[in-house]
Design a protein around this nucleic acid. Structure first.
Lengths: 349, 349
DNA sequence: AAATTTTTGATTTACGTACATCAGAAATTC
DNA sequence: GAATTTCTGATGTACGTAAATCAAAAATTT
């Protein structure tokens, strides 16, 4: 049997109350006594039974996820994962809620953060927008002692406790590297479709992509970035125009959302042999992978991100350390042959 | 606050003891009363507080992992992950242990399974060997009411409760597909290095690889399979001989272990441009990816597999359902650009 | 209607921790 | 050495469930 607080008390020759004072960092213990207890804890290899502790505390952790509104499939996937996690969260004494704010609206995001602070939540996860108002709001959360993690898009320099998301420069590099290898000696320039260059993750992906492409043995022109504002209709127009204007186009890298429009444009275009790499596995990109319209999809698993955010926020709320290596979000590469079987599949690992 | 057993008792107008009898399926409750209680449970949306329940039960779950001996890095990684999971398992009242048996030794494996049955463990996870003795032992585990999952390599048709591992045919297809795309129009045959064709997962990977290669627009010869017995020295010899004998070799698919030998042979050989795809991310394959000696590595995450096995065994032991979609092990594709930063990194998700 | 069986209630203890209270001991200050 | 402050012990309750016991009530059989 693993040691309990009683064993510590016996071993250290003190009372249960004193052990409790040491364990929970309560005042009123002399240095000598504290050392005795800590020695006993170390000697016995005691670890607190969190389940029992939470039961005794009957503490609940209300956590808020602040996500952008709109039909960005990845954001909706995140929201779905939060709700899914909410089903199991009861047993872990976590109460999850989702607040949506207009996309790219720094003021609204800041307001939502302040609202969460006012409600005295135990933690906040937010998709950051790169703006001073947001940094300020994050600062207020920190001042209030409420842990806050940025999700998907980071805001370095703010007081956020942690970033949950992929390394977007590496993601861009991966895309460039795959694109280069898939194209091989095939000539022709490549196009890049982004949402907006004012968003940090999109900038970073482009940066990595260009770096990888220039590292390739074959130099290849990268056309000026097409900004589709993550809007399917705009994306479709831009890609269609590009296909028409550049007859020898060899590849397209879509690093933002709005892939529905990309797929539509490709389908409408003549069946040209072209290498297409996109981000985020959604119903549309999955279907396009299966038909061969898209060659590879880079994905960050929404389920993993949500669970990681929850773990980190709970750890911060309890003052526990976060094991960085354990919370690293990996970049998945999907081609049609390693697609997970279930469209809504969540491996839960 | 979420409802407790007391709330059910009040709502149903029965005593706590009766609620307990219904909840834990104990005898001595009339059908009418049982229905009343169940109605109250449904009406209140009661869910058992597993933490409290486990605390009250103070039940422990001794689980055994039976793994092959030897220096197969992936198996050693699995073992390391079991030990790592063991550190956190205490809080979940799970006691993990590892038993190693000679690789490919059906008799030893069967004996190990019987040993675990004799020890009345709560669950068994084993890397299956395709043999009748093993099937029989699995049958005995089932007869003893001990849940058993196969790990990495399945044994369909046996009484195993679940298989934890990747779809190896899909893995082979993925390798073939990537190989074909990376090679493009480049001429030349490809070689396949396997451990042994008597192992099911290796057979399946080969099958998928060949299927994907024949689906490619460019037909390409696949040389007879080289069987390295997962032994680095043998693998090195075989690959070196192959490189010498086939000057126009375009690619190598290594679908088993022994990649250390493969890498050594490649390094010793002249710096020929060749597409190399291997399985399992180990220190050697990682280093080879970084130098460019290997182009892609297909990986099944040992940590995910171990955690999935634990979840499944615990669920089975408690008579709870397993959410299949949640326990699907994904096939990871790594190229040098999306390598996880930490060699021993475990994302824990 | 009595005897028997089955079902239900009431109550208690336990799991491991958190937290509060109050009395008593030890250390410190005056 | 007394008064004060600081520390420690003893004890109890709580969290939500499991599990056991024994008595009482209800249903069933004889």
């Amino acid at each position: 049997m693993r040691p309990t607080v009683h064993d510590i008390a016996d071993k250290a020759g003190v009372s249960l109350a004193t052990v409790d004072r040491v364990l929970n960092d309560r005042p009123g213990v002399r240095g000598v006594t504290r050392a005795k207890v800590e020695a006993a804890i170390a000697a016995l290899g005691y670890v607190r039974d969190v389940a029992a502790a939470n039961l005794a505390k009957s503490r609940v952790y209300p956590l808020v996820f602040i996500l952008p509104q709109g039909d960005n499939p990845f954001m909706r996937a995140l929201e779905a994962e939060v709700r899914r996690a909410g089903l199991h969260s009861a047993s872990e004494r976590t109460q999850l809620s989702v607040v949506t704010v207009p996309a790219f609206d720094a003021g609204a995001l800041a307001k939502a953060i302040d609202g969460a602070i006012a409600e005295k939540v135990a933690g906040i996860a937010a998709v950051a927008v790169d703006a001073p108002e947001v940094s300020d709001a994050i600062g207020r959360a920190q001042a209030a002692g409420i842990p806050l993690v940025t999700l998907v898009s980071d805001l370095a320099g703010s007081g956020r406790d942690h970033f949950v998301g992929v390394d977007n420069i590496a993601a861009g590099r991966t895309a460039g590297s795959l694109m280069g290898r898939f194209l091989g000696g095939l000539p022709g320039p490549v196009a890049v479709l982004a949402g907006s260059m004012r968003v940090r993750d999109h900038r970073e992906r482009l940066e990595g992509f260009c770096a990888a492409m220039t590292d390739m043995p074959v130099t290849r022109a990268i056309l000026p970035v097409l900004e589709g504002q993550d809007d399917p209709a705009r994306a479709r127009t831009l890609i269609s125009e590009c296909l028409a204007a550049v007859p020898d186009l060899a590849g397209i890298y879509s690093l933002g959302a709005g892939n529905q429009g990309l797929v539509a444009a490709l389908a409408a275009g003549h069946a040209r042999h072209m290498c297409v790499i996109a981000h985020e596995l959604t119903a549309h990109t999955r279907a396009a992978l299966e038909t061969g319209a898209i060659d590879a999809v880079l994905n960050q698993d929404a389920g993993h991100e949500v669970r990681s955010a929850i773990r980190v926020l709970r750890a911060k709320a309890d003052g526990l350390p976060v094991i960085a290596a354990q919370e690293r979000i990996r970049l998945d590469i999907f081609i049609k042959d390693n697609l997970p079987a279930d469209p809504d599949g969540d491996d839960g690992n």
